[in-house]
């Protein structure tokens, strides 16, 4: 049942990651890997350390111990800038968008195309934003709308369109379906399928097993800062998975 590790296929490999927050031992030596084009569901109870693990990958936190390999090479990720340069994009739990800024300003946040002297190429930004959203099947009225006027699903769409537009190699989705209506959830799951069709690897964190079971090809279950289980979808049913998550949370 253990997943067989073929290193050269991995886009991401994290080895023996440890992280302390003051006196909280949040990650206790976690190994994690992600294959090219693969979608992994990262599961576990509240406080298991899921967000911490992926925030280390995205440069938001720095690990106290452990190594990260990206695309076969050992890398040091000290900041979100470093992660973005490698092609790691995050759609955060806490919304990776600036609510009062326009769609196009959000999509190009931190990577604005310029015409010279740092002046933004607004026309290019608008056109490419609309194109990126359309590729995802999202038709929005104008690239100038502030993000706060969009629905929850549309907002995740903007964040995902941004990841795809910048040719991410690995997209991290931290609870992208939380607090969304059924219709919006389906929209977002459709966006994630678009990521898969583009051949981009992704990590999908959620508490909703129904959402992740439909989409992911492999599941990693964490509890109290450790990896408990790593299984392929073909080896588990939805019920097995549900039991695994509950059991891991209860072990010692």
């Amino acid at each position: 049942m253990e997943y067989e590790n073929r290193q050269n296929d991995d886009i991401v490999r994290m080895v023996n990651i440890e992280k302390w927050f003051g006196r909280v031992y949040a990650l206790r030596g976690v190994d994690f890997h992600l294959k090219r084009g693969e979608t992994v569901g990262l599961l576990g109870d509240n406080g298991a350390g899921k967000s911490t693990l992926i925030k280390i990958l995205s440069g938001y936190h720095v690990a106290d111990k452990g190594d990260i390999y990206f695309d076969g090479k050992k890398v040091v990720i000290r900041s979100p800038r470093d992660a973005r340069r490698l092609g790691i994009e995050t759609v955060y739990q806490e919304q990776a968008l600036a609510p009062n800024l326009s769609i196009s300003r959000n999509i190009f946040m931190g990577r604005e195309p310029v015409k010279g002297f740092g002046i933004m190429d607004k026309k290019l930004m608008d056109e490419e934003s609309m194109q990126a959203l359309q590729n995802l099947g999202l038709r929005l009225r104008s690239p100038d709308l502030p993000v706060v006027t969009l629905s929850g699903g549309e907002r995740q769409g903007v964040a995902i369109a941004r990841a795809i537009h910048f040719k991410a190699k690995c997209v991290i989705l931290d609870e992208p379906t939380v607090a969304l209506s059924v219709k919006e959830v389906n929209e977002v799951l459709e966006f994630i399928r678009e990521i898969q069709r583009e051949g981009i690897s992704s990590i999908f964190i959620t508490h909703n097993l129904y959402h992740v079971y439909e989409i992911a090809e492999r599941f990693v279950v964490m509890a109290r800062g450790k990896k408990m289980t790593d299984v392929l979808k073909e080896d588990v049913t939805l019920d097995d998975l549900s039991e695994l998550v509950i059991k891991s949370a209860l072990v010692e």
Binding site: R84, E94, A98, P99, M109, G110, R111
Partner: peptide
């Protein structure tokens, strides 16, 4: 507007 998002997008 959203310092975390800006930081995550690589803005110092």
């Amino acid at each position: 507007d959203n310092r975390d998002a800006a930081h995550a997008m690589g803005i110092r």
